[in-house]
Nucleic acid binder design. Structure first.
Lengths: 141, 141
DNA sequence: GGTTTTGTAACCATGATGGTTACGATTGTG
DNA sequence: CACAATCGTAACCATCATGGTTACAAAACC
């Protein structure tokens, strides 16, 4: 399988917050842009709040605000905040320890997979929310 | 989510074929090393055969053989042969085209996600089956 | 007090995944 | 030719992640 849409939606949410300025946005408004249910948005925003990217405020006029400068949030940060697991899955059952390959393949693969994941994340780290929103606005014009 | 164990199992299978030399291995033997069901192995090997990495032979003494030199098969090749989809998923429903962010975020993200996937694959491409088997054998000693 | 909004639990439909059984087709051996 | 070994593949199932939905309590503001 592939990485779920959580990373995409989280990036969308934060890009919208960065684009729309300092006033709070409600989960319902954000859901209208993403085209999904507000609860899905709130679930994701809960993770982004744990990571310190956003804050929330209940009641009328409430909603969600960016807490950190969008130039200091990279797509890698967002991805890590909402997608916890390692990129590659190892064997579901432990391979045969009496086979020379089975006995040692996991410890060898782990290092390779971590390097591949790090390379992917480094590429995501090259784009900040400021870059992203500028790119999006460029396409809009 | 993360990448399924298909890539890991496929690498395991081909490493075993490279390690055990030219004689064919049966799916049952391979399943014993991977610790799973032979049908799971045959399903994966069917994809690897489509990619031209292995050939099969029925009947007694039959089984599976590497068709290409293990120094010319990289982990990237194996990954691509068994895991088809793009690494990142976009929105499941189309974002709101009347929102400036929603209207253009997908076309912007696609390029970024492809670059991230390419970086990950480039890292996998650094390891061939020969390298991998040597690393595994080094750990075994 | 009443409205708005968040916070979160609960439930569900869907799809991917991996395991299992089953059985036909092919191949080699005696 | 008969038989055993092996592949090829369909069918079914249990499990899990995902995302959508409803519901409702809690907090905040007017």
């Amino acid at each position: 399988m592939s990485i779920s849409s959580r990373t995409t939606i989280a990036i969308h949410i934060l890009a919208l917050l960065a684009h729309c300025g300092p006033d709070p946005l409600t989960s319902e408004f954000i859901a209208g842009s993403v085209n999904t249910n507000p609860v899905v948005i709130r679930r994701l925003l809960a993770r982004l709040r744990e990571a310190g990217f956003v804050g929330s405020q209940g009641g009328p006029g409430g909603g969600w605000q960016l807490l950190r400068q969008p130039g200091k949030i990279t797509l890698r940060d967002i991805h890590l905040a909402v997608e916890g697991a390692a990129l590659f899955s190892l064997h579901s059952a432990k391979p045969n320890p009496r086979c020379p390959i089975g006995k040692n393949i996991q410890s060898t693969l782990v290092g390779i997979f971590e390097a591949a994941q790090a390379a992917m994340e480094a590429e995501l780290a090259r784009t900040t929310l400021v870059h992203l929103v500028k790119d999006i606005q460029t396409r809009a014009s």
